[in-house]
Computed example of a mutant assay.
Amino acid sequence: MADKLKFALALALLAAGVAGFYLLGEQALIVRVLAVLAGLAAAAATARATEPGRQFFDFSKEAVNEARKVVWPSRKETLQTTGMVFAFVVVMALFLWLADKSLEWLLYDVVLGWKKS
């Protein structure tokens, strides 16, 4: 029950930050953005105090650690892969164009006899 109340408070803090953005409409933009960021920070801190919030933040840390372990392709590998994708797209476009024109010729000229003039 306490987690639900903390989570409701976190949502209220987030809503207050967004409401502050609109209520401070005549202030400088930086003040309005800071109001949203303050509401977001307060909401995150409150949500982190809940059990699901702790699980989420732990999961997020693990996800960041796993992303650091990824071996990203080099520039050369990226360019080669991109080139293969473009080549495949061109070949597939030509194949589909030929298939379309062949079926058009077969149906309209041969089967139905609708010669183009």
Rank of each mutant, 00 (worst) to 15 (best):
L103K: 13
A28T: 08
T82Y: 05
L11I: 08
E62W: 06
W114Y: 11
L23H: 11
A8F: 11
L79T: 14
A99Q: 15
A43P: 01
L11F: 09
L29K: 13
M92R: 08
M1A: 13
R32Y: 06
V85T: 14
G39R: 04
L24H: 06
R68C: 05
W72G: 04
L24E: 02
V36N: 01
L107R: 10
L11W: 05
V90T: 12
L94I: 12
A99N: 14
W105F: 15
A87F: 07
L96S: 09
L96N: 12
G53L: 01
K4R: 12
A44C: 09
T46H: 07
L37R: 06
L106C: 05
L14T: 02
V64C: 03
V33Q: 09
K69M: 11
S74M: 08
V71T: 08
L112H: 15
R68N: 03
V111A: 07
T78G: 11
K101C: 04
Y108C: 10
A49L: 00
S102A: 14
D109A: 10
G25N: 10
A44R: 08
V31H: 04
W97V: 12
L37D: 03
F95M: 10
Y22W: 02
E66C: 10
A99I: 14
W72K: 15
L112K: 14
F7C: 03
D109R: 15
A16P: 06
K61S: 11
F7Q: 08
F21V: 09
A49S: 02
A63F: 15
V70L: 13
R32N: 06
L34T: 01
L37W: 01
L14Q: 01
M92A: 09
K4W: 07
F88C: 11
P52Q: 00
V31I: 01
N65R: 10
G20Q: 00
E104Q: 12
V71W: 04
I30P: 03
F7G: 04
K61D: 05
F86W: 11
I30M: 07
S102F: 13
L103E: 14
F88E: 13
L34E: 05
W97F: 14
E77S: 07
E77F: 04
E77C: 04
E77W: 01
A49C: 02
L94G: 13
K101N: 12
K115Y: 09
V89F: 09
A47T: 03
F88T: 14
D100P: 02
F57M: 09
T78P: 02
G113H: 10
K69Y: 12
V90W: 13
V90N: 06
V70C: 07
L40I: 00
G39E: 04
E51T: 02
E26N: 05
L29Q: 10
G20H: 02
F59M: 08
V91I: 12
V90L: 12
A47V: 03
V33I: 13
L112Y: 15
V90Y: 11
E66W: 15
D58R: 03
